[in-house]
Nucleic acid binder design. Structure first.
Lengths: 220, 220
DNA sequence: CAATATTGGATAGTATTGGTATCCAGTGGT
DNA sequence: ACCACTGGATACCAATACTATCCAATATTG
């Protein structure tokens, strides 16, 4: 397809597509002449990826890093995925050379190895500093429950990871991490609402049945 | 204390404090003269709150909304908390008048009421649109597991909510929602690492014991 | 009493980011 | 032969969260 068609099919304005091309996050179409080029489904897919990552707050140059890893995953899949995930937000401002005492305690408690090379360790440390600074520290009780539930989620995530190609595995890992975080956050807020409603308003617990007008309980 | 002391104790530059004062997120100190004012611990606490919320990506004018709700929670605590949480990111761009078919399905499945007035419903719908657009849809299997685990977390969150004052309840709700989201995200990423390590590298499952050089398994 | 430091207040400036718009000239299709 | 379209380059823009500077009044200190 030509650019104009890519524009209307993707919904991305031409100026923006040019911008993505310039920034090297969208691969150029196959040139069929000096002023014509041909784009395919992989361009649509790439645009969806860019949209998703940009929507998750990634600056364009980080997206560039990720698309390069997807386009060219090396031999070591685990390593590649690690680097791709490391590119995701949040981006701390200070240096990351601290001791991570809070994160260490959490990991020790959960029986996970402490490897300061994981950027997520630093993210966890900063997040724990923030909750502490604000007076809602991570108590043992909370840690135990959070750890158990989060691990349950993570195990399922991994179980559902595609095994057909390294490319799709990297994409799955990046997107699964980035785009499911808002899903989890929204579900938690709704669960808060629901639980709070029952506690604060003293309402009875609704059984998990189909509400009126919403009959597709098991529908896709 | 005087401004200069507030500056050094909070670590926030004077120009920034003035900016917060101007924007109405930091309450003015008690004037002790035409060119002097007195600040107290509540100013330090407020600065910590602002830091935490700004760090979570809230624009200053949203922080203003929240501090007003904290300073003046009305009669209806549930309502006030709802409004405060509604002020938190993410901030969708388009209008929010859709049907929320995906969110409805999820809520029906989980036995929670669908109330389009909750902003989190819209957030969930958009998040689900994103995962779908990118080819990792919310399957029933995932939904069931996510729902169960997230509800477990949410129930604990509510159980730990302070009941002493409306003010602190609002603060807890806002901060607990905002600052724990990064904690959950970081913990999930680390759990992914840990599980992936065991699967991809075919390593044996480490029992939750103390790794070498890390003896404080139960230490704070 | 006088010199110095500090304060509140006002205003202007800055850096970053992610686009958007314009212009241009070459060219492919009809 | 003509006109819409293309790639390419460059300029521009809007929002945000500070940051810096200036000013004049007033404490504070010696």
């Amino acid at each position: 397809m030509r650019v104009s068609e890519l524009v209307e099919r993707s919904g991305v304005p031409l100026a923006t597509i040019k911008y993505y091309l310039r920034e090297g996050v969208l691969m150029p179409g196959e040139a069929t002449g000096a002023t014509k080029a041909d784009y395919g489904d992989e361009h649509l897919r790439r645009l969806a990826l860019i949209k998703a990552l940009a929507g998750a707050g990634l600056p364009i140059h980080k997206i560039r890093v990720i698309v390069r890893l997807i386009d060219d995953p090396g031999d070591d899949l685990h390593e590649t995925i690690g680097r791709a995930i490391a590119t995701l937000p949040p981006y701390p401002d200070g240096p990351r050379s601290r001791e991570h005492p809070r994160a260490r305690r959490v990991l020790a408690r959960l029986g996970q190895v402490y490897d300061p090379a994981y950027p997520a360790v630093d993210q966890l440390e900063r997040a724990l500093e923030a909750v502490e600074a604000v007076g809602i520290p991570m108590t043992d009780e909370r840690l135990e429950a959070y750890g158990r539930h989060i691990r349950g989620i993570a195990e399922l995530d991994l179980a559902l990871m595609p095994a057909d190609s390294a490319r799709s595995a990297v994409e799955y890992a990046v997107l699964g991490t980035a785009v499911y975080e808002p899903v989890i956050a929204a579900m938690r807020r709704l669960a808060h609402q629901d639980v709070a409603e029952r506690i604060l308003r003293r309402r009875p617990t609704t059984p998990p049945s189909t509400p009126p007008g919403e009959p597709e309980r098991t529908a896709r």
